[in-house]
Design a binder for these strands. Structure first.
Lengths: 337, 337
DNA sequence: CTTGGCACTCGGGCTACCCGAGTGCCAGGG
DNA sequence: CCCTGGCACTCGGGTAGCCCGAGTGCCAAG
């Protein structure tokens, strides 16, 4: 129902519109791309494409612009992810390799992504539920107060203060720490719930109340509330991409952790790059925005998601290339440490 | 040289302009405020104020708007910090009290401040150099790799991976940990440089190389690089305040940690609220912005700075009130933990 | 020093207008 | 059956002209 030429026309419209930000007409189309037909022919094709909902004209006497559906077809069938040159890859690699810290890796990643795509970059911290425990530390604060510090094998450190019901001494802390480390070391956080359940049997009855308090805090902090932070960068790029709807809405949405989580979370597939266009991401206020996202981390050990947010009028091939490349290297860097 | 009425006129101009965002003329002035003189009189006063550089007229036939100098005088002499009602204070208190975490306290603080002032809020993490060491933890990772975790009495946790020159066993780690904790516990981070200098004498000569590596990393991480993170919130408020210069510049400036640090850092006084107006903060791109900032933490133990950034056309009394109140309660919350 | 009067300025909003890009349609030709 | 050139039509956006009203500065009188 759409022959090759019509698809070529759609592709051309998307490409031109993305680069010029102006509705594209039949004449300009035959000139810029070497379609060996007359403008009138193109017009007929465009009429069909419009009828099918792939393009619209904003005003009666203007060129056409792609609809969400048009972009969708473009992304699915008409374009290929733009691979990065080896020089670019090397630049990415060295930029990320300079990081000395988990925080720093994430910071650099978000900056890099924002710079490469000239869009807003969104990076989720490595997820707790996917990582394993490396060490648990208990630090006495004041009377009846402990600081629980949990170190994961992705280098992430989680902390939480806990009030324990009875006072403790150094020995009991030592013991509790030893038990915890023996049981938890190397275990995935997702497994911990079941492990903790039978832990109390291992400690001195006198210590049970305190132990229970610590256990429940660990559970609560790390399993129930898998706080997965998201950081955002490159917000200034939004000013260039004049959003049809208010820029305010977009900025607001980007400040809501929950919204961002959902945006990235909807990326089902871990390894491939997902694109959600316009209304496809059912976040109010991002109706005219697209999200290009993917997971990072090795295939057997997915860590989290990252991506970019921009106007639907976005250079998808490049954005997808950048997201894929950055995800790859960030995953690699994190795997090493 | 400026009599009372002229000052009153300036005050009225600032207040009206802030609330209406329109140049204010002589007639409107006598109507809205009950100055018992005629518009002509006001005009004469305004001519003087303009001559002295406190106000300007954007167009020949328009009302006047304050200059930076005008705002400065207003802030210094013509306004008082707007105190918060007890109800408002209670709301702040309960909102902040819900936090369970240092990260969470900072997050809530920045949100609260942004909401109260309808401006962009900027909050600096409690400074390391001001806080004391509570605990040092060494965690073996793989061969010749240690994770150094440092816990401060503000509840902050700093982490860093260190490669040590020779391999180690559990005992040597234990010993090193014990030595470190014995020496560092309760000491201010600023003192540590001198302490570490004479530490090597305390450890077994065989362990010196590893110990030295750990020491130097602690030094480097915590003293030299007192990484003081700044977080920003409420960026969407920028869209409401139409900046005369590009909004892009402002957004860009707000993404630069360094710039933010400088902005807050220039707040010399720890306890009082500092206001920097327009070109006074010598950050390019924030020429039309003002910063209202103060320190938080108790007087004897300053932690860091916080504040808001907005257009020079800002409700200073309210902003100052909010900044002061939030700083107070945030400091209080952090002092408790 | 204040006040009312008065002439002057000029930005912003309104209308009218035209131009040109772009379309849809149609009839003719390969 | 599809492509093509021609042609009439539409309409957004830019330009020019216009007026209005808010606001000013100045001046002379109280």
């Amino acid at each position: 129902m759409l022959d090759d030429r019509k698809l070529a026309v759609l592709r051309a419209i998307v490409e031109d519109y993305v680069s010029t930000n102006e509705p594209v007409g039949s004449r300009a189309l035959v000139e810029r791309h070497n379609l060996d037909v007359s403008p009138a022919t193109i017009r007929n094709d465009m009429a069909v494409l419009e009828e099918q909902g792939y393009i619209v004209q904003p005003h009666t006497s203007a060129g056409r612009i792609p609809t969400d559906k048009g972009y969708r077809l473009f992304v699915d069938k008409l374009s290929a992810i733009k691979p990065f040159s080896t020089a670019e890859r090397r630049a990415i690699e060295t930029f990320l390799a300079g990081a000395y810290d988990l925080d720093d890796v994430v910071m650099r990643t978000v900056r890099l992504l924002a710079q490469l795509t000239r869009q807003v970059a969104v990076v989720q911290y490595p997820s707790l539920s996917k990582s394993a425990v490396r060490h648990v530390e208990l630090v006495p604060l004041v009377e009846r107060r402990l600081l629980v510090v949990l170190i994961t094998d992705t280098g992430r450190v989680e902390q939480r203060v806990v009030d324990v019901p009875t006072s403790y001494d150094e020995d009991s802390i030592m013991h509790l720490r030893a038990v915890l480390n023996a049981c938890l070391d190397g275990r995935k956080l997702t497994d911990i719930a079941t492990i903790v359940a039978d832990l109390p049997g291992r400690v001195d009855p006198r210590e049970r109340p305190n132990a229970a308090a610590v256990f429940s805090v660990i559970l609560e902090t790390l399993v129930e509330r898998h706080e997965e932070k998201v950081i955002v960068g490159g917000a200034s790029n939004l000013t260039a991409a004049d959003f049809s709807q208010g820029l305010r809405e977009v900025l607001e949405a980007l400040e809501e952790q929950v919204v961002l989580m959902r945006l990235l979370g909807e990326t089902e597939d871990q390894t491939s790059v997902t694109v959600r266009i316009g209304a496809e991401n059912d976040v109010l206020g991002l109706r005219t925005a697209s999200v290009v996202a993917t997971g990072y981390g090795s295939a057997d050990r997915p860590l989290a998601k990252l991506g970019v947010v921009g106007p639907t009028r976005m250079d998808y091939p490049t954005a997808m290339g950048a997201v894929r490349a950055v995800a790859r290297y960030t995953g690699q860097i994190l795997a090493e440490s």
